[in-house]
Simulated scan of single mutants.
Amino acid sequence: MSDTNTGWVRSWGAAPQSAYDGLGSLDGHPPLADVTLRQVVRLSGGGRRVRVRFTNEFGTAPLTIGAAQVGLAVPGGGVRDGRALTFSGAAAVTIPTGAPMLSDPVELPAAALTELSVSLYLPERVETCTCHDPVLDTGWTIPGDAVAAPALPANATVLPVRALISAVDVVPGGPASAIVVVGDSRTDGAGSTPDTHHSWPELLAARGAGFVVNQGISGNRLLNDGAGTAVLARFDRDVLATPGLGFVVLSVGGNDLAISFAPRDDGPLAGFLKMFPGAPVTTEDVIAGHRQLVARARERGVRVYATTMAPLEGADAFTPECETARQVVNEWIRTGGEFDAVLDFDAVWRDPEHPSRIREDFHSGDHLHGSDAGYWALADSVDLSLFG
């Protein structure tokens, strides 16, 4: 099911969002002006040609890239085999407000699970940074134009978000299809060890699943905006427009239920809940949202899988009402017949002695997000033949 016209297949992705609707990691960061951003991404599947998708989709003004480069990442921020990126043959480009921009292709043979380094120079101030927040791979901000520097300059500082890049596509050596996972923080990899690629979609790629693209956003919901654009609203851009799309995995709805059934008082969650507008939703609403995604994906002729929602008792947002709602939706996911297959993540993570809780060794300490072992357990539970 790869793209028969161009051969491009997406190998890495990070769902774009505004710096103002994430976790606020850029708050207080110096303005991005006359700086180079250097960021590391890991390909899920390999190929011989590469192109980078830059993004100004949440920008409030045109974005100028003065120079850009992609190469093989060296530990510590270095680069080897760097290739200058161009845009319709030009070294610099201005990306219109609200738009993405694909680089021209470059020859850069890279195997599956290769780490690439992407550098871009920003000669002018970026008014609103389109980003992905948080980032689990260390990136850097370097004063001036350091795009071509093979080693990380000593004056580099850590970049706290994934900034202005949203995807890397490759031309693989044979037929291939992309697997796109869309979800929330549990898909994004929250709780895993940084710089280890331990989100469960990345671990699924490490098991040999092929081209796996992680389109999770921490705090994301299915039906309403808040932390990132709602899945129903971003589905066409972040999932259905993926080059080489063959499979969609839905892992959404948990935050919709948790926020809808969270205590509405002046307790510890009061400030957090202000990030999430919209009226509370029902289990019927969440089920209807899944059906919408299935229908839209099937129009593209792709297979659609879903994960069940894992437990959350012990987390701040837990209520008995939320647990009841989670069980209702999970039962529908398992038995409703809407999906080509179900990945029963609830069964993988739940404590056999206390099924409304995650096993102690599978959560990161907050009873909500996975530990490295927890995410490995999810990836290991997936039948790779589903993607054959």
Rank of each mutant, 00 (worst) to 15 (best):
L159P: 03
S18I: 00
E57C: 08
P263T: 07
T114F: 03
L293N: 05
P105Q: 11
P143S: 06
L26A: 10
V286K: 00
D316C: 06
Q215L: 08
A110W: 04
V168L: 11
L378T: 02
T128K: 04
A288P: 00
D188Q: 15
N255Q: 12
V181M: 09
Q215P: 03
L108M: 10
W140S: 02
L23S: 11
S119A: 15
G210R: 01
A379P: 02
A341W: 05
P175N: 12
P277W: 12
V158G: 04
D266L: 14
L102G: 05
A15Q: 03
L204M: 10
A258N: 13
F318W: 15
V9G: 04
T242L: 03
T196S: 13
V239W: 01
A91M: 09
D238V: 01
G271C: 09
L232P: 01
G24D: 11
S364A: 15
D133R: 00
V252T: 08
P30D: 11
I142L: 12
L269I: 14
A306Y: 01
D21S: 13
L223F: 05
R48L: 09
L312W: 08
S364G: 11
D266S: 15
A19Y: 02
L250V: 07
D265L: 05
L245P: 00
I95W: 00
Q17M: 15
N5Q: 14
T242W: 01
L72G: 05
R162M: 12
V79K: 00
F318Q: 05
H198A: 12
P201V: 08
R186S: 13
L159T: 06
D104R: 13
D351V: 08
V52S: 00
V161D: 04
C131A: 12
G226R: 00
A295R: 10
R83W: 05
G78Y: 04
G46C: 12
P172K: 10
K274Y: 08
W200D: 02
L85D: 00
A310H: 13
P75Y: 10
E338R: 05
C129Y: 01
G144Q: 11
A279W: 09
T187V: 15
W376V: 14
T229G: 06
F318I: 04
V239N: 00
T229D: 07
V248A: 06
G365A: 12
N220I: 07
L26T: 08
T335G: 09
A262I: 04
I179V: 14
T335D: 13
V135T: 15
G189R: 03
L43R: 00
P175T: 11
P96K: 11
M1S: 09
L108Y: 10
M101Q: 15
A110F: 07
G278K: 04
I333E: 03
P280Q: 10
L222P: 02
R53V: 10
D256T: 03
C322H: 14
R300V: 08
A99V: 10
G370L: 05
N330R: 04
D145W: 09
P105Y: 12
A190L: 14
G314R: 00
G336I: 05
L159Y: 06
T196A: 14
R326Y: 10
S371T: 11
D169M: 00
F276C: 06
R264N: 13
N5F: 12
V248K: 01
R162L: 11
L223I: 14
G139D: 03
S103Q: 05
R42H: 12
V180S: 03
T308F: 04
E284D: 15
L312C: 12
G370T: 07
F339K: 06
G191Q: 05
V281S: 02
L102F: 14
F362Y: 15
S185E: 08
L204P: 01
